[in-house]
Amino acid sequence: MSVLSKSPWVIHYDGSSCNGCDIEVLAALMPRFDVERFGIINTGNPKHADIFLITGSINEQNIGIVKNIYEQMPNPKVVLALGICATSGGIFKDCYNVYGGVDKVIPVDVYVPGCAVRPEAIIDGVVKALGILEKKREQDCGGNCSCSGEGAC
């Protein structure tokens, strides 16, 4: 748990999922799994978020919204594609309004498969994302500030 030196905040957006993954994201925040004890908070504001949880695939109508949320998030940021729809389109891949996975629009760092994705898998994915977030922050900082590369900034 060395990666948990900070409290990452997540933002969740439902692309075009069936809702199964969305309620599992919420279930991960509930007393049974309770990620809030690690300081992981679900925020509604993209400008407060470090981790972008996206469920469901990309379609004509939500393409702009997904880009918009991603661009509003401050750097460094990590994107998690939750569920098989967000990964590749899944069972809806052949539908006329489904363009495919989230990586068609924004860069994805962690893919979490499953239909619907289980809360344990979501937590696992978020922990992976934390490591990536830390690396990105070190790259961004580059040791040019008062933390001298120790990551305290």
Partner: peptide, 8 residues
Amino acid sequence: FIHRGLEK
């Protein structure tokens, strides 16, 4: 926003 077109 979530239209997939699965009836087709």
